[in-house]
Design a binder for these strands. Sequence first.
DNA 1: GGGAAAATATTGAATATTCAACAATTGAAG
DNA 2: CTTCAATTGTTGAATATTCAATATTTTCCC
Lengths: 147, 147
Amino acid sequence: MAKPPKENSPITEHLTYLLAQANREINRQLETRLAKEGVPVEQWRILKVLSDGNGHSMGELADAVLLNHPTLTKMIDRMVSDALVYRVQDPKDRRKVLMFVSDRGKALCRRLNSLAVSQEEHIVESYGDKSTTELKRLLESLIGTAN
Amino acid sequence: MAKPPKENSPITEHLTYLLAQANREINRQLETRLAKEGVPVEQWRILKVLSDGNGHSMGELADAVLLNHPTLTKMIDRMVSDALVYRVQDPKDRRKVLMFVSDRGKALCRRLNSLAVSQEEHIVESYGDKSTTELKRLLESLIGTAN
DNA sequence: GGGAAAATATTGAATATTCAACAATTGAAG
DNA sequence: CTTCAATTGTTGAATATTCAATATTTTCCC
């Protein structure tokens, strides 16, 4: 089994393709579950990151939830309209805006967490305990490596 | 090490998040390389799938390159303008359109393949032969499982 | 065979994302 | 201290994606 694909290898042998495909499928599954609450996956990520109760700047948050800055700004606008989160100017550095979850957001986040955990339990069930753990380990390591 | 995350686990322990993050990083890397040819990753995928010389219908192609149908249609429009691919009505089933690569597209595809392979070689180098192979195996298996 | 239902691809409007420019604040250098 | 560069977040225009509706062809069933 040759490790890096040859130039004429099918695309399905490329790591980048396998990652994209797996991500697409798992993300779709989750999307379907979260649809019960009418919330996109990214909003779950945002709520979850903010759930530590500390204020997070927009930059921090954008990195954490894997969104570009302008995309995040506009999504946060919507979430503020829905009273899920709110902005506070950072007193230490007035360029920054600190984001917080509202009580409503916390309640929603709990329901979403439950849906997300149940999805992952379902994956573990059919894919296996061992494979899941090992896959997570390898992904973490890849992320650290890619840098 | 608990296998499925608890409801209050950080998002970084969710498989869905690790996949999204890894995919994002690797995809960015590739994007940067392919930028040398001014081509988005999806177009490389399209060219590569069509490189087997057989005609592929739009539906087939959309599945293979992980794009929704209307998105693919519009991207193909652009590639036809650039004379990289062309459409032929399927004589067996006139609802279908068969896509083919042009010579120009083939030449571009070769250059893109070289860039993509070099990226993956670079990953293997820093991430390790063993990890890469194992990660690919696990991803393939997950994809089969997720269904 | 004839007509309804399914499959395939495209279109146009609605929505979302991205890029580049901007405004505000802070940090740093002279 | 003052000016210039860097950081942070937002905005608006350009671009891309998605959803729903459409047109065309085929398949199914009576």
